[in-house]
Amino acid sequence: MSGGRRSDRALAAAEQVARMRGEVMFLMQRPGSCFDFLVSGPTGTSAIRAERALRIHGSPAEIAVTHAAPIARISAATLAPGISRELWFWSPWGTMRYFRVDGTSLIELDMLGVVRAPLVKGALAGAVRPRWRKSRRKSGGPDPLPGPGPGQSPGTGFHHQKPGTPGPSLAPAGSSDREPAPVRYLRRRAREKGQAGNPAGGTGPTA
């Protein structure tokens, strides 16, 4: 609710914010005057009315009901096309709120004149995120690597493998044509025995 007489402190605080938005031009106050100044900046030109309010908390709809009289005057004022109508509230505790007047409704702005994003509802804020494994399976992509289990350190997990798919090769790169170690050992032993039985390198006795 307004504190009655127009507040010089509210006007001074509003001027500081307005100069952040652009060029400020004060309006001559006459009987029936509705706005205090114009501000022109990158977001356009706005006609501003600064009000002192003891309570500025609540939703825009609640504030519109509490301050119905100044909102009605702002809506009825004659302005050039393209000039928006704004109502700013300043509390004696130094807080401010900024609204654009749209008929009998209020749209809350930030101090730079940008429409404030709506608050996230509790149901959305606490919603459970979908499991990554399920979303990847539905999309046809590969399964993700499972995280480490109890007592395991990072990097000790194994990739989940679907039935019927070949597993990864454990042989070192470039050794796919090399014989297994047991076969190489038996061949070497056979050669050593052959050399021991025929030291001269002959063919040996025949049957």
Results as ranks from 00 to 15, higher is better:
residue 106 L to R: 09
residue 106 L to P: 07
residue 106 L to D: 03
residue 107 I to W: 01
residue 107 I to M: 05
residue 107 I to K: 01
residue 108 E to M: 14
residue 108 E to F: 15
residue 109 L to T: 05
residue 109 L to C: 06
residue 109 L to S: 05
residue 110 D to C: 11
residue 110 D to Q: 11
residue 112 L to W: 12
residue 112 L to D: 05
residue 112 L to G: 13
residue 112 L to M: 14
residue 113 G to N: 01
residue 115 V to R: 10
residue 116 R to A: 13
residue 116 R to N: 09
residue 116 R to H: 11
residue 116 R to I: 10
residue 116 R to L: 15
residue 117 A to F: 07
residue 118 P to K: 15
residue 119 L to Q: 15
residue 120 V to Q: 14
residue 120 V to H: 13
residue 120 V to C: 12
residue 121 K to Q: 09
residue 123 A to F: 14
residue 124 L to H: 15
residue 124 L to V: 11
residue 124 L to Q: 14
residue 125 A to H: 08
residue 126 G to W: 15
residue 127 A to H: 08
residue 128 V to K: 08
residue 128 V to W: 09
residue 128 V to M: 08
residue 128 V to P: 10
residue 129 R to P: 11
residue 129 R to K: 14
residue 130 P to S: 08
residue 130 P to I: 04
residue 130 P to C: 09
residue 131 R to D: 05
residue 131 R to M: 05
residue 132 W to M: 07
residue 132 W to H: 12
residue 133 R to F: 05
residue 133 R to N: 03
residue 133 R to C: 02
residue 133 R to D: 02
residue 133 R to M: 06
residue 135 S to Q: 13
residue 135 S to G: 08
residue 135 S to W: 14
residue 135 S to H: 11
residue 135 S to R: 11
residue 136 R to G: 11
residue 136 R to P: 10
residue 138 K to F: 12
residue 138 K to T: 12
residue 138 K to V: 13
residue 139 S to T: 09
residue 140 G to D: 05
residue 140 G to E: 03
residue 141 G to V: 06
residue 141 G to S: 08
residue 142 P to R: 15
residue 143 D to I: 06
residue 144 P to T: 07
residue 144 P to G: 13
residue 145 L to W: 11
residue 146 P to K: 15
residue 146 P to Y: 14
residue 146 P to G: 15
residue 146 P to V: 15
residue 146 P to N: 14
residue 147 G to H: 14
residue 147 G to W: 14
residue 147 G to T: 09
residue 148 P to W: 04
residue 148 P to S: 12
residue 148 P to G: 09
residue 149 G to E: 02
residue 149 G to W: 02
residue 149 G to A: 05
residue 149 G to C: 04
residue 151 G to Q: 04
residue 151 G to F: 05
residue 151 G to S: 05
residue 151 G to Y: 03
residue 152 Q to I: 01
residue 152 Q to W: 01
residue 152 Q to F: 01
residue 152 Q to M: 03
residue 152 Q to T: 02
residue 153 S to T: 13
residue 153 S to A: 13
residue 154 P to S: 02
residue 154 P to H: 01
residue 154 P to V: 01
residue 156 T to S: 07
residue 156 T to W: 15
residue 157 G to D: 11
residue 158 F to Y: 14
residue 159 H to A: 11
residue 160 H to M: 12
residue 161 Q to E: 04
residue 162 K to T: 06
residue 162 K to A: 06
residue 163 P to Y: 07
residue 164 G to L: 03
residue 165 T to F: 04
residue 165 T to L: 07
residue 165 T to K: 04
residue 166 P to S: 05
residue 166 P to Y: 01
residue 167 G to H: 02
residue 167 G to Q: 07
residue 168 P to Y: 00
residue 168 P to W: 00
residue 168 P to A: 06
residue 168 P to E: 00
residue 168 P to T: 02
residue 168 P to K: 07
residue 168 P to F: 00
residue 169 S to K: 04
residue 169 S to A: 00
residue 169 S to E: 03
residue 169 S to P: 02
residue 170 L to C: 03
residue 171 A to I: 04
residue 172 P to Y: 10
residue 173 A to E: 00
residue 173 A to W: 13
residue 173 A to I: 04
residue 173 A to D: 03
residue 174 G to Y: 00
residue 175 S to E: 00
residue 175 S to D: 03
residue 175 S to I: 00
residue 175 S to T: 07
residue 176 S to N: 00
residue 176 S to H: 07
residue 176 S to C: 00
residue 177 D to H: 14
residue 178 R to H: 13
residue 178 R to Y: 08
residue 178 R to I: 10
residue 178 R to G: 08
residue 179 E to A: 03
residue 179 E to C: 01
